[in-house]
Design a protein around this nucleic acid. Structure first.
Lengths: 344, 344
DNA sequence: TTGTAGGCGTTATCAC
DNA sequence: GTGATAACGCCTACAA
């Protein structure tokens, strides 16, 4: 015992089993009742004599007894655990979602088993397997990379927080198209006409762009575009490219598909001595914590990450009880700050 | 079944137990061996005939069998779960730590059970109880609010990531004093002499300040100070107060005990048209993601959150195997960016 | 190398 | 209102 042993390619820690405390039998014996009664006391069954209950409770306190979740899990066939699969723990918005999920779960006596995919599909699949190994009763996967290849086990449902993906019917998502429309409207409201979109790979950015494009098309405008990867560096580069492009009219409004990229855009503008919003207005997406820390404070399309996390947790709990719910779609909102305003 | 029932003040979800799959007995029967042999196959015991093993493995694959962690947990008296208690999931630095912890744990076949205290001691205590209810084998608590009153169970060790706290002997911490010294040296190196410290409540800030003060005292300098609460708003206010103070020589260097407060300081300087670093140099603390997004990019004292998370996880695994380790103290480093440099 | 048998701590189904 | 008792799925001496 106590030695690291190989187990299926991973190094497992073999632990000395914790010394077991008093069990239900010992409590029952000393209280002069049966284990069934002790169990009933701890499960709030009504049919137990108040006197008996009192006696059992006191004895349990003395012996520092509480029912072992391990035994309970076994007999009930469930663990009270929900798997939570996240692409990247360092991405601020996910922190907000996780927090909301954890809140809901703990309020229902459940706990969140955390796993990270490091933005990688293979790792995600492995992590999902690991969660299932721990007998989670259900799972929430945020912006799944693997999607289709998420392993499943009979009776265990995955809820995804992301745009629709085949094989994952249970879903909480953001109306990304509406987000794009909001961004376009804000820039138009500020009198901007020479616009650009800094996007990224993937469905989410595509949806944001299509809303953006639709709204502009409505007033007969087109826009330039450049693709990044949600990082600040890519936003910086994209803005550089867009600004350098030989162009009759200079850019006066930029919509970035993420706040980090928007931060890069702001920096690119600083570097060229372009004022924000006097020369160029900028709108970000997500309204992550950083939005209000940037200079100038960033106008952003808010993704209600807390509400979405909340909804995802409630959905997974619903499924546990056998009550499916339709996918829930959340509306983004505009949070206006200093990076948009009248020109000059 | 399926109805929400009251249980000790929390709403518990009563789930229909998932239909159980093939068990070890079924596999054993069909493979024509005993359950003991099947068990041995799945536990990498050497003493099993390769042929037998092969047959069992194949049958297990066919029946989609894998050992139930529930049964295994019960018989072994452990859950392969480590509790992870965090003050606040939205604080970026914690995300980095959590990620590191999760990496180590999953590499050892363990998982992280997440709980948040919302920066509140009572909630933290409750969350810790909840983790213990889930039979975690050990726990990691980051910047504990409750400290002394963390509940314990025989055989379950808490590892804290924070300065020393009574009752929690197992520890990973940062040399905050050294961090303060690094900050002072950097400001001195840039030729600054009119310095200020923007701190906060608590042991960590006190240690950072004492290092800062000691280094300045070494060259015969003193400094002004103001106390915030690690928020951007408090940094903004603190800097405002410090800058307004009637003063012979104007401030030319500010050290903030956190990057968020440093962001507030930068904004206060912007608002007063003071240039950074030309007029005032600024040093932050933590080197969180935001440091390099601020304008100008913030010089910061880096807290190696990833290494610390890693160490905390390894420590808790060590304790599981009955091998205690001495507290580990990490050295901060200076990450020089644009907010420090020569004056004018 | 393999099988037998007991038990881990709890809940649930019966009777009483 | 309470007590026997049989699972739950697995691991692990011990014996063969």
């Amino acid at each position: 015992m106590g030695e690291a042993v190989s187990e299926g390619g991973i190094t497992a820690v073999s632990t000395t089993a914790a010394p077991r405390g008093a069990g239900i039998r010992e409590v029952a014996r000393q209280a002069g009742v049966s284990t069934a009664t002790v169990s009933r006391v701890f499960n709030n069954a009504e049919s137990v004599n108040p006197e008996t209950r009192q006696r059992v409770m006191e004895l349990a306190a003395t012996l520092n007894y509480s029912p072992s979740p391990l035994g309970r899990n076994l007999v009930q066939g469930r663990s009270s655990l929900i798997g939570l699969l996240v692409p990247n723990l360092s991405f601020p918005l996910y922190g907000v979602m996780i927090r909301a999920v954890e809140d809901v779960l703990s309020a229902h006596g459940m706990s969140a088993l955390l796993a990270s995919s490091h933005d990688d599909a293979a790792t995600e699949t492995r992590a999902a397997h690991n969660l299932l190994r721990h007998a989670v009763d259900g799972g929430i996967v945020i912006n799944s990379q693997a999607g289709l290849s998420l392993p499943t086990v009979r009776g265990v449902n995955w809820v995804q927080v992301a745009p629709e993906l085949p094989n994952l019917p249970h879903r909480v998502e953001l109306d990304n198209e509406e987000g794009g429309r909001l961004a376009a409207r804000e820039l138009l409201r500020c009198g901007r006409r020479q616009l650009a979109y800094v996007g990224a790979e993937g469905r989410e950015s595509a949806d944001r762009e299509s809303g953006f494009a639709a709204e502009l098309a409505g007033v007969g405008l087109s826009y330039r575009r450049c693709v990044g990867d949600y990082s600040e560096a890519s936003g910086l580069m994209a803005a550089g490219v867009l600004l350098e492009e030989g162009q009759s009219a200079p850019l006066d409004g930029i919509f970035a598909a993420g706040d980090l990229m928007a931060a890069g855009v702001l920096r690119a503008l600083h570097l060229r001595d372009l004022r924000v919003p006097a020369d160029v207005a900028v709108v970000g997406f997500d309204d992550a914590v950083i939005a209000s820390l940037l200079y100038p404070r960033l106008t952003s399309i808010r993704q209600p990450a807390d509400l979405m996390g909340h909804a995802a947790a409630e959905l997974v709990l619903s499924l546990l009880s056998g009550r499916p719910r339709p996918p829930q779609i959340f509306a983004p909102t505009l949070v206006r700050r200093e990076s948009t305003g009248p020109p000059d």
